[in-house]
Amino acid sequence: MAVKDYIRERFFPHMWCAGCGHGIVLNGLIRAVEKLGIDKSAIVMVSGIGCSSRIAGYLDFHTLHTLHGRALAFATGVKLSKPELNVIVPMGDGDALAIGGNHFIHAARRNINITAIVMNNRIYGMTGGQCSPLSGYGTLASTAPYTNVDQSFDVVQLASAAGATFVARSTGFHVQQMTEIIQEAILHNGFSVVEVMSQCPTYFGRRNRQGDAVDMLKYMQKITTPIGSKAKEQNPELIERGVFVRKELPEYCSAYDTVIRRAKEGK
């Protein structure tokens, strides 16, 4: 099927700003699903609130646009209730890790077969550029006018420590890698987290003098490197891209099937 078969064309052009990285994630996600050839009716996309969360409305799946931060909680209900569905949860960084941080770590801990995509633009886009738990020390935001003194999370480390069994990172510049990683994440049987570094030229870019979308993508190219590369040894500041965790642990819904079996046998 063509890209257009996966979108709700009547809502295009979409609402995102020119050069918004969330559009690149949309693009990569469609190509991942297309390559996997998954039936559109077998996918439920659950999103929260934010610019990123609007992605759900543009895709021709079963789409559930929920509350700020709560997408994974809704998704857990969908998935446990009907495990045969593919559940994909795109989230903003604030959505996933500020207000939704608790749901994020618990979904990871349960290892429920959901694909979480953190569209990390290091800012609150929808509400106009406030700092997020991923903005980072020393950045500027509308609520950090004298520079941000909050330290940031490392999504990969957080997800890994919380128990996610597939953890990866890519960027809007590295679209081929991003698409391949999303594909693998969807196929992975367990909780998978994909952090995609996404640019918000409108707020993060402008405030932090990172230039336009093109400049921001160039910057992502510059500051990232494949996992375990030579470059990383020489420059520890570089952010690694690739698959960090890929492991097998009992998946929650299958584990619950065991509960059902035990309950029925009376044990």
């Binding site: 890209v3 979108i7 995102w16 918004c20 559009g23 809007g172 679209v175």
Partner: peptide, 13 residues
Amino acid sequence: RLCEMRCPDLAIE
């Protein structure tokens, strides 16, 4: 196809 894949607006085919 990198332009097609990187276009945030799905405007390239």
